[in-house]
Every structure is written in C-alpha cells, then in structure tokens.
C-alpha cells in the first residue's frame, strides 16, 4: 500500500518493504533472539531471490530443525520444514523430480553436519543441484546452547562445561573434499558478499555450500565471554581475512584466539556435471572424469609453496 506522492513533492511514504512479498510477513514477530544472525541471512537469501530474476514460484526453500531450521517458514516461497538432519535428502527429492526448480536448503551447523552429516557429504559427492546455506553459530541454539561438531576447541557450552575437547569441522574444507562445486564462507557482517555468494549458489549448476558464521549471543556468546551479538560482529570485523585462494585444510576457526584470522571468501567455483539420474541412456554421457580434483591438488600445493 502506498500513499500517492504529490506532484510537488516526489517523496513517497511506503508502508511495505520491497522484500515483503518474499517474506511471510503474517508470521512476524519471529522467534529469533535479539542480535541473532539468522534474520540477516534470511534477508540475504530473499535479496538473492529477487536479484536472481527467477520467478518466486521456481524457488523452493527446505530446512531441517533448529533455530536456523525455522528460516524456511519465514520465506514466501514453497517451503518445507522437515525433520532434524533430513533437509538435504528431502531437497534432493524435489530437485531430482523437478530439475527446473531452484532448491535452497537453509539450516544450522548441527542439523547439516552432525545429524545430517552423511546426507550432506553424499549430496555434495553427487553434485546435486542444491544451494546449501549452513548457518554456523557454533552450538545448538534451539535447545539452549549445547556443543556440536562446529564448537571450537575449548569453547564452553552446557554440555562442555570445562571447554570442548573435540576438534571441530572445518566446513569449507569438508565440502570441497567431498565434491561441492561452489564453496564459500562468510559471516553475517559480510552482508553483500553473502548475498552475492547465495546468488552464485542459486545460479550454480550443482552443489553449492555456503557456510555463514552467525552470532548466537544467547547460546554461544554468553558462556564464552562474548558480550553480545555486536561484540561478536566486532570480532568478525577485526579478525576476518578475505582470501578466495585460501588453502582450505588450514582455515579452521579458532574463536578463542583473538590473534588467529578467520578466513572467509568464495573458495571453490568449479564446473562439474550436476546430478541428473539417467533417463535410460548410458551413464557415460553424464558422468565424466573430474579434472577439478587434480587441479585443486595442484593449486593447493602451490598455495603451500606460496606460504599461504
């Protein structure tokens, strides 16, 4: 609804936001905590949908369980809030049956890489035409701040009261190793870069994996002396280092060491045949050798020799 601007004054008072049509505004207020990063990520996805030029009815959003899993419910496209860990295979079913649709999975680090870890690696290996936005807040937020496979070493949570003993996943390295065609890591501080990465993911023929570091002041910040969401964002600004050519085995995140960089960037963008189950023709027409793998290894060795 707009108020008509007078001829003399071009200023218009607009009562709707340009992205409202892509949001389920009737579901607001949302469930997210103050300073949670998920809202910004939803915004980036919505902005990417608009800029993709692809009609709304050709976008599908699938999520699993958790705070991040609620994202699908706020986006006004066909959306499916599935079971814990199963967003990726559910999305595979849609993407394989309707290859004309652009299916995006938005879910959390625990959902996608712990309980759903097996599906993630196999979907990447197959190069299913999906965009996966993995919101990494380093903990299980919905259940009140437990440790997960991304919780940094020594970080405290309600299930690691003495600090985590486990080495966490390095997600971009994992995604690349198992075959993702596009791999990026950004934080909610990098709104424009994140939106661009999602847009590239949507247009990518194949499996796109985007890790987004996101503050969870309630679940993760509080027990780890990160004052609030803004403080976590300040740390991102101070410590993030953009390097698209980073050597992926070495971009682990050490949140507790203020001196170590958090490497972000669009790390991998290769063209591999996307997953199209055969329609009765011999598989050799779709399954080609993967030159990217050899190139990546060479690049990595060069990266090492360059001292990266």
């Amino acid at each position: 609804m707009t108020t008509a601007a007078s001829a003399s004054n071009p200023t218009r008072i607009v009562e709707t936001h340009p992205i409202d049509k892509v949001l389920r505004a009737d579901r607001f207020p949302h469930i997210l905590c103050p300073a949670c990063g998920i809202g910004s990520i939803i915004h980036c996805y919505v902005q990417a949908i608009i800029e993709s030029g692809i009609p709304l009815n050709q976008h599908v959003c699938v999520s699993g369980i958790g705070c991040s899993g609620r994202a699908a419910g706020y986006i006004n496209v066909d959306s499916y809030h599935t079971t814990h860990g199963r967003a990726v295979p559910f999305a595979l079913g849609i993407a394989v049956y309707r290859p004309d649709l652009h299916v995006t999975v938005i879910s959390g680090d625990g959902d996608l890489t712990s309980i759903g870890g097996n599906h993630l690696i196999h979907a990447a290996r197959r190069n299913v035409n999906l965009t996966v936005i993995c919101i990494n807040n380093f903990n299980y937020g919905m259940t009140g701040g437990q440790a997960g496979p991304t919780t940094p070493l020594s970080a405290k949570s309600s299930t690691t009261p003495f600090g985590s003993w486990e080495r966490p996943f390095n997600l971009p390295h994992l995604a690349h190793a198992v075959g993702a065609s596009f791999v990026a890591r950004w934080t909610v501080l990098h709104i424009r870069q994140l939106k661009e990465a999602v847009l590239r993911g949507i247009h990518k023929e194949g499996f796109a994996f985007i890790e987004v570091l996101s503050p969870c002041p309630t679940g993760f910040g509080r027990p780890n002396d990160i004052g609030d969401g803004l403080e976590e964002m300040r740390r991102y600004r101070r410590r993030c280092h953009v390097d698209d050519n980073a050597y992926l085995p070495e971009i682990d995140i050490d949140l507790t060491n203020d001196e170590s960089p958090i490497v972000v960037g669009n790390f991998v963008d290769v063209d591999r045949p996307p997953f199209h189950p055969a329609l009765g023709e011999p598989a050799s027409t779709t399954a080609k050798p993967d030159p990217d793998r050899a190139d990546a290894r060479t690049q990595s060795r060069e990266s090492i020799s360059n001292g990266r």
Partner: peptide, 29 residues
C-alpha cells in the same frame, strides 16, 4: 524406471531414502 521416464536414486541410507521420496512427492511425484 529410467527407461520409462522415471527417476531412480540409490541413496546413502534409509533415512535419506524416505526423506527423498517425501520431497519428490511434495513436488508431485
């Protein structure tokens, strides 16, 4: 199935199998 225009996917496990058929059915299959 592929010879009559359908899609066959061998999944990583049964958790994935059931999730995938639900997704496909949600899309009309």
């Amino acid at each position: 199935l592929p010879q009559v225009g359908g899609r066959f996917v061998q999944m990583e496990d049964e958790l994935g199998s059931i999730a995938a058929i639900l997704g496909a059915s949600a899309a009309g299959a």
